[in-house]
Computed example of a mutant assay.
Amino acid sequence: MDNPALDLKRYIRGIPDFPKPGILFYDISTLLRDADAWQIATARIARAVAAWQPDILAGIESRGFLMAAPLATRLGLGLVMLRKPGKLPGETVTLNYDLEYGSDSLQIQADAIKPGQRVVVVDDLLATGGTLAASISLLRKVGAEVVGASMVIELSFLGGRSRLDVPVHTLLTYDS
């Protein structure tokens, strides 16, 4: 089910001054709540991701889970979660990383990835690329072969793609 003429940007709402003044927030909740548009979006992303022949998907907390779960189902793949510290049970592996506005950390369960598994990282948004680059590093730290990354939205004017060393697929791009 895909209508190639359907412009999915019509289903993304821009919210000015969120989360702070001067920021235009691209809200995917309006896409998620439209069943037909959401099905078309996941179908388009699934086609792009399938070309990389992943063994498993990795979703970044938390909107990345919303993207990765239907993709994993559609592609017949498993899904691992990359989360903030203290959110995953069992033994975890942590990566601390710097962002333009501070620092952050991500964790993965130590046994989530088998060495050499082909992984595609999934999230809702590519902005400056800091969290996505850290996710790729964390996955490599536990033995993954990261073969690509896919997001619904890319804010190309922020240059996040330039921080990544894997192929990147984005469904929608905003230049400003």
Rank of each mutant, 00 (worst) to 15 (best):
L32R: 03
L32Y: 15
R33T: 14
R33Q: 15
A35E: 15
D36M: 11
D36W: 09
D36V: 13
W38Y: 14
W38I: 10
W38E: 12
W38K: 14
Q39L: 13
I40K: 06
T42Q: 14
T42W: 09
T42D: 10
I45K: 03
I45G: 09
A46I: 09
A46L: 12
A46D: 10
A48C: 10
V49A: 08
V49H: 07
A50V: 12
A51R: 14
A51T: 14
A51C: 07
W52G: 08
Q53E: 14
L57Q: 01
A58F: 09
A58P: 09
A58C: 06
A58E: 10
G59E: 08
G59K: 05
I60C: 08
E61N: 07
E61S: 02
S62A: 15
S62W: 09
G64D: 04
G64V: 04
G64H: 00
G64I: 05
F65N: 05
F65K: 03
F65Q: 04
M67F: 11
M67Y: 06
M67N: 06
A68I: 05
P70G: 06
P70L: 04
A72R: 03
A72N: 08
T73N: 11
R74G: 01
L75Q: 12
L75K: 06
L75E: 08
G76Y: 09
G76S: 11
G76A: 13
G78L: 07
V80W: 07
M81Q: 12
L82A: 10
L82R: 07
K84W: 13
K84A: 11
P85L: 08
G86H: 09
G86V: 08
K87Q: 11
P89A: 10
G90D: 13
E91H: 12
T92Y: 08
T92G: 02
N96A: 15
D98G: 13
D98A: 15
D98E: 15
D98C: 06
L99P: 06
L99R: 13
E100V: 07
E100W: 05
Y101F: 14
Y101C: 08
Y101E: 05
G102C: 07
G102K: 09
S103E: 13
D104Y: 04
S105W: 07
Q107F: 04
Q107M: 12
Q109V: 12
Q109N: 11
D111I: 07
A112S: 14
I113E: 03
I113F: 09
P115L: 04
P115Y: 04
G116S: 05
G116F: 07
G116E: 01
Q117T: 06
Q117C: 01
Q117H: 09
R118E: 08
V119K: 03
V119N: 01
V121M: 10
D123K: 00
D123L: 00
D123F: 00
L125N: 03
L125W: 00
L126H: 01
T128D: 02
T131I: 03
A133S: 13
A134Q: 02
S135K: 00
S137K: 12
S137C: 02
S137L: 05
S137F: 02
L138V: 07
L139A: 00
L139W: 01
R140S: 01
K141R: 15
V142L: 07
V142T: 05
G143M: 02
G143W: 00
G143I: 01
A144P: 03
E145C: 00
E145N: 15
V146F: 01
V147F: 01
A149T: 08
A149R: 04
A149Q: 04
S150P: 02
S150T: 15
M151F: 15
V152W: 00
V152K: 05
V152F: 10
